[in-house]
């Protein structure tokens, strides 16, 4: 067996394995269904193949093979668009929708992970090709470990303190501490809120966190995750029980009200703490001079 064969074979294997490992997330994450896993594993295999053949092809002075990478870019964009379309189509059947920002984040992640697979496969096949089987496998496994660590991203508990809050009604207005949530017209609805609702307060650690939580898409993602993990006391015809997150305009603190099916506040806090910070919501005013100056 030649170096070319082993290079391509290890590249494809490690790349496809990397795609599988990147998909293994908990149940609230998409995909967690067998068919979606098969889809993405197949696409990951294609990405790994494209990456794995690149270095041996270049070594054989087949420079046109590089155009394959352009093909890969087109294909990955297609993956992103496919995911986006599917999640948007499913949105109408969710009691608490994910929101456009969350969907865009998921779609972008799918595209990016295919690129990562391509690079891992390219690295593995290149090193196997030049240095041999064992160094190639070691480099591949190291790359997978590094990538898995890097793609983790931040969660809400990294940017804000999440704690239980108190809610109250002032006539028909619902407040979580000093944050006005909504106008609840009917007495019977207010009674259900008093019996079943739970309130959470999110206090950003700094101005960066404040701006992230100001993003409406980020707040929708929190509502969606909390509702899908703890269940939600609502149906399509009870819009008044939609979980809501509103902002204190002075401090940037967020008040959340939700009617979970599981009334355990500790579990609710945990669910909120582990919601991913969306890429589209990330803002870093503290990275700028004006932002730091204003934060004083």
């Amino acid at each position: 067996m030649s170096n070319v064969f082993w290079g391509i074979a290890t590249g494809i294997t490690v790349g496809t394995l990397a795609r599988y490992l990147m998909m293994r997330r908990d149940v609230r994450q998409y995909p967690s269904y067998p068919h979606a896993v098969v889809n993405h594993l197949s696409l990951g295999f294609l990405a790994a193949t494209l990456g794995a053949v690149a270095i041996p092809a270049l070594a054989a002075e087949e420079y046109t093979a590089v155009t394959f990478l352009a093909l890969a870019a087109t294909q990955f964009r297609e993956v992103r668009s496919m995911e986006r379309q599917m999640l948007v189509a499913l949105e109408a059947s969710k009691l608490v929708p994910r929101g456009k920002d969350f969907i865009e984040g998921i779609a972008r992640t799918f595209e990016a992970r295919n690129y990562l697979v391509l690079f891992i496969a390219m690295l593995t096949s290149g090193i196997t090709f030049w240095l041999g089987f064992l160094p190639g496998i070691i480099a591949g496994i190291t790359a997978v470990a590094v990538v898995r660590k890097l793609i983790g991203g931040k969660v809400i508990m990294d940017i804000a303190k999440v704690r239980a809050g108190e809610f109250r009604f002032e006539e028909y207005n619902l407040f979580v501490e000093d944050i006005h949530i909504m106008n609840v017209g009917l007495e019977r609805t207010r009674k259900i809120y008093e019996e079943r609702a739970k309130a959470v307060v999110l206090e950003p650690f700094n101005d960066n966190g404040r701006e992230i939580l100001a993003n409406v898409g980020q707040r929708q993602a929190i509502a969606h995750d909390a509702a899908s993990l703890l269940g939600i006391y609502r149906d399509v015809d009870t819009a008044e029980f939609t979980p809501l997150l509103r902002r204190n305009k002075d401090t940037g603190r967020i008040g959340m009200i939700i009617l979970p099916l599981e009334p355990d506040i500790e579990c609710l806090l945990q669910a909120v703490q582990h919601v991913p910070v969306l890429e589209s919501a990330i803002a870093k005013p503290l990275a700028s001079r004006a932002g730091r100056c204003a934060a004083d």
């Binding site: 106008n183 609840v184 017209g185 009917l186 019977r188 015809d237 819009a239 008044e240």
Partner: peptide, 18 residues
């Protein structure tokens, strides 16, 4: 008034505000 508002909110999938 509350009964009518409740029925309307269920039928229209809407929220009642005071």
């Amino acid at each position: 008034q509350a009964n009518i508002a409740t029925i309307l909110s269920r039928v229209l999938e809407a929220v009642v505000h005071d």
